[in-house]
């Protein structure tokens, strides 16, 4: 698949580093990174990335609220949740907020690239 410009959002610097490396290894470029929900919204508006990976638990504003805010202004944004929350309600809230994919940590290259592929096949054209 084509190389995408990705915004990576996670409060943990280690996870950010790992996700960025993985995304680059599977052929994408890193548009930017953010460590809080609010920063994610600002970065999205400036960078206009083609894909966002979004953590849920973050200081300032959580990933679900940030997803809602981004989609309110950019309804076509493609956001994948990359999280450690597997509780039923969290999953439902994330999908209701408009996330197009949900991956639980630990995330390997295969899992991540498979999810990106799926999201693009399904939602990439609209």
């Amino acid at each position: 698949m084509n190389s995408l410009r990705v915004l990576v959002v996670d409060d943990s610097p280690i996870t950010l580093k790992k996700l960025c490396k993985m995304l680059e290894d599977i052929g994408h470029t890193i548009a930017g990174t953010a460590r809080t929900g609010r920063d994610a919204i600002d970065q999205y508006n400036v960078l206009q990335p083609e894909l966002v990976t979004m953590d849920i638990t973050m200081p300032d504003m959580d990933g679900i609220e940030a997803t809602q805010c981004i989609l309110q202004h950019s309804p076509k944004a493609l956001i994948i949740m990359v999280t450690s929350h597997g509780q039923e309600q969290m999953v439902i809230d994330a999908i209701d907020s408009g996330a197009k994919g949900y991956v639980l940590k630990p995330v390997g290259e295969d899992k991540l690239s498979e999810m990106i592929q799926k999201v693009f096949e399904r939602y990439g054209s609209s």
Binding site: G86, Q87, E88, V91, I92, A94, Y102, L104
Partner: peptide, 13 residues
């Protein structure tokens, strides 16, 4: 558990 949660997300989508 995580595989189940991911399947759940897929169904919700």
């Amino acid at each position: 558990q995580n595989r189940l949660a991911e399947a759940h997300a897929e169904l919700a989508l």
